Simulated scan of single mutants.
Amino acid sequence: MPRTILIADDDPHIRQLLAFALAKAGLDTCEAEDGEATLAQVAAHAPDLVVLDINMPRMDGLEVCRRLRASGEIPILFLSSRDDEIDRVLGIELGADDYVVKPFSPREVVARVMAILRRTAARPPVMEDGAQPIRHGLLLLDVEGWRADWAGGEVPLTVTEFALLRTLATMPAKVFSRDAIIDRLHGPGFAITDRTIDSHVRNLRAKFARAGGHDLIETRAGIGYRLGACVGEAP
């Protein structure tokens, strides 16, 4: 079945432009013109992804993102009207999966939407006995159910956060550069900044720290990231 994308922007021209481009890519769309309408559309249609403008009336995109993240893990692609790194980093730290700065190419938005949807639908190769979970100390990743547990309790993650953590956990001894992580998440040549990866890592650390996992990811100065010791006996 076609995936449904909610386009949330107060500019009808942008909504029309993106709806046309996404339809050409085989995706269904629905629209919202402000923040309150966005929340109502998510409740009514359960879209597979939200393209969310930051600057909207009747609740801005950042607040919409906060509320969506409080109730679920629907993928979010932010649209920012300014090339403002503070807005972009804050959006990622609130749980957005990616962002595009206006003015943008509709093809770029479609490419980023498709990349997020591929991560949502991605599954590792199935072994003879089925895909195996990844366990590292107190960390357990259910790669088929897209669930992360620490010491037996679930830690809710966004699609991008889970994909990043799975990348590190599949090779726990390897130090991944930021470029290598970007390639694993999006494919070679995908335009995204190192600061975005840093923001996702901060989110992961904060979420697991609240669950008691304070050494989840190690930073190797000048190189990148690797999975931490995750010491302890699994429950």
Rank of each mutant, 00 (worst) to 15 (best):
D53H: 05
D53R: 11
D53S: 07
D53C: 06
D53I: 11
D53W: 03
D53K: 07
I54M: 10
I54K: 08
I54L: 12
I54R: 07
N55A: 13
M56K: 11
M56Q: 11
P57H: 11
P57E: 14
P57L: 10
P57S: 11
P57W: 13
R58F: 01
M59N: 08
M59W: 05
M59H: 04
D60S: 03
L62H: 14
E63M: 04
E63K: 14
E63A: 10
V64E: 05
V64Y: 09
C65P: 02
R66T: 09
R67Q: 15
R67C: 01
L68H: 03
R69H: 06
S71T: 15
S71F: 00
G72I: 11
E73C: 03
E73W: 02
E73D: 11
E73T: 12
I74M: 09
I74H: 09
P75Y: 08
P75T: 13
P75D: 11
P75L: 08
I76Q: 05
I76A: 04
L77W: 10
F78K: 03
F78G: 00
F78C: 02
F78Q: 07
F78R: 02
L79V: 12
L79E: 11
L79Q: 12
S80H: 09
S80V: 02
S81C: 05
S81V: 13
R82H: 13
D83N: 15
D84R: 07
D84T: 02
E85C: 00
I86P: 00
D87N: 12
D87T: 12
D87L: 13
R88Y: 02
R88S: 04
R88K: 15
V89Q: 13
G91V: 06
E93F: 00
E93P: 01
